[in-house]
Each structure stands twice: as C-alpha cells, then as structure tokens.
Amino acid sequence: MKQEMITDYFYDLAFLNNTPVSVIIELSTKCNLRCEHCYLPDYKNRGMTTDKIKSLLIELRQLGVVNLSFTGGEILLREDLFELIEYARSIYMRVFLLSNGTLLDEIKVERLSRLYISEFSTTMFSVQPEIHDSITKAQGSLDILKKNLQLLKKHNIRVQVKMPIMQTNALCIDAVRDYCEQNDFKFFASPMIYSKINGDESPKCLRVNRDNLGPVLKKIDDLNNRKNKLIHESDVPCGALFYSFSIDSNGDVFPCNSFPYKVGSVMENSVSNIWNKSESLQYIKSIKKTDLNHCPGCQYEDQCERCPGMALLDSENVLACDTFAKSIAEVRSKNYCLN
C-alpha cells in the first residue's frame, strides 16, 4: 500500500474511533531567544515536573497517542529533556522536537540520533545573518543554527525547517528553500503571523504587506505540499481537532497549541476524562462549517484556510472570521484567477 494511503487510513481510523493519536506538550516557556513574532507572552514558566510528564506519557499512550511533539519555549533548556525522550521512546512513541536549534552540540545530537527521534523541527527566517538575527534578537543565532543543522544532518536526523514569513524576510524564501534543498531538509513556509496567545496584537504588524502577499503566496504554494482532505475534514472548521490536542506548561489542555481555548487541566483531571468528557472540547468539536458566523456564503470559503484558534485570537469569538486567512484566500483567489 502506498505510504500516503496508510497515513490517511491512520488518521481516518483515529477520527472514526475518537482516538487522539497526536499530542503537543509544551515543556516550558523559558527561551534563550526573543523572536519578535513569537506567540508566547512571557518566558518564565518552567513547566510540569519530570514525574508528572512521565505519568502523562503513560496516560497518553493508553489513550492511543503515538505522535508526541515536545515544544517550548526552548526545549533544550530543560535538563530532563533526554530523560523524557528516552521514556517516550521506551513506550514506542514517535518523538517530534520543536526547537530553535541553537543549544545543540555534538554530544546532544549523537544522543538524539541514538534515540531515533522522528523529526527535529526548527525555524529559519533567512540565510542572511542580519535578517535572521534581527528577528531572533540574538546576534550570531543564524551561524549557530546552521552549524547545528549540519550536526543533525551528519547524524542522519530528519530536519524540518519552518519559515514564518514576515515583511522583513519576505524576499528570503528562495534562499532558505535552496539551503534546505541542498541539505535535504524538509521546508515549510507560512505567512500566518498572529497575536500572542494573551491577545497582545503586536506581532500582527510584522505580517507581509498586502502588496507583497500575492507573490509570496504564489511562491510558497509551489513549495509547500498541499494535502488532500481526510474523510471528516470537509464539514468541520479544523480536522486536526479530532485526533490531536495540546498541553501547555501549566498542564492546561487546549485543542491545539495555537487555539487558546482551555478545555481542561491534567493537574485536575485525567487526560482520558478531558478527551472524552470535557464539555468545552465537545463543544469545539461539535462546530460545523455551517455554524460559522461569516463563512457560509463567503466568496473565499473554498480557498480559505481559516484556523478556529486564530479566529478566536482575532476577535475573541470561535465562530468569527479569521480575517488574515480570509485576506490570504482573497489574494490566492486573485493569483489563480484567469480572467
């Protein structure tokens, strides 16, 4: 059977059986960088204890989770990171790491390679240090990142480079894409920049200008792999809500790490109870596209990649329009319109 077919079957089964197969755990919000578009409002939370996370992993595994993503803050600031990865691997979970990539060294990369993580995902804004470092607010961060990416490559660890596109780095897409191609790194670029999760809208002023959005979208649509929709995804605002969720540094549970709508806390309740019985989560999952305030009848509905979390951040209403996604859909529609 083709790999894509097995993957689709996996997520279809997860949906049909109400099984969360993917979870994101925020290990802490502490970070050594201060990226100007970051959605985190502060960098002080040390995260849950090692024992709490280990017991969570057992619970998650029993619930059906196999894809485990550790994010931050910067995950490598946690001294127990390798202990946690080792624990997850011992119960056969796939481990995906999201990191800024600046705190690796040869010993750490070698350890990661022996643990057979699934992917190391990081962020690169430009191959020009003055642009990348101006966004991370850390001089030398690009050089360190590139050196560490070479270590990951040397140890055959799969790498994904994500590139949030803002006005300041909108002209850097080709160069970052070329760097990734040369090194056999997966590349994903996106112009979706949103408010911080506490509602602070300051990152929105970093977005690509409307005038530049058309060419940027044309470029990234050629580069990013667009996936077919899974069986359940045509009627609901976000298909991922049916097989994944996110746990933050406090143990609070959210439908996704960019969806600030608390549906429970692992400090007060079991994961299984939250997944199966949380009324807030059931409400979020019950929303159909036809329930949305502005989408039915909108001329850009088909092209729009509305994110319910982002709509919530945008207007404090989970049923509202994700205005940035809509403007992207509008530009995209003009890009591909023949008349």
Binding site: L13, A14, V21, Y92, S118
Partner: peptide, 27 residues
C-alpha cells in the same frame, strides 16, 4: 524483538508500525 528504531500504535483492528530510520509506515 522490536528493534530500537521503531514506533508503533494499535488502532482498532490495525497496528501501524513506523520505521524511524526510513520514515516508512507499515500496516
């Protein structure tokens, strides 16, 4: 034995096995 480089999951009547070296998925 299961080798160290695999991950796997049981879903309903299926087992999905992931080879973390090749990134292939088996059913």
């Amino acid at each position: 034995l299961y080798p160290q480089h695999i991950s796997w999951n049981s879903l309903k009547d299926s087992i999905f096995v992931f080879d973390e070296i090749t990134n292939k998925m088996y059913l």
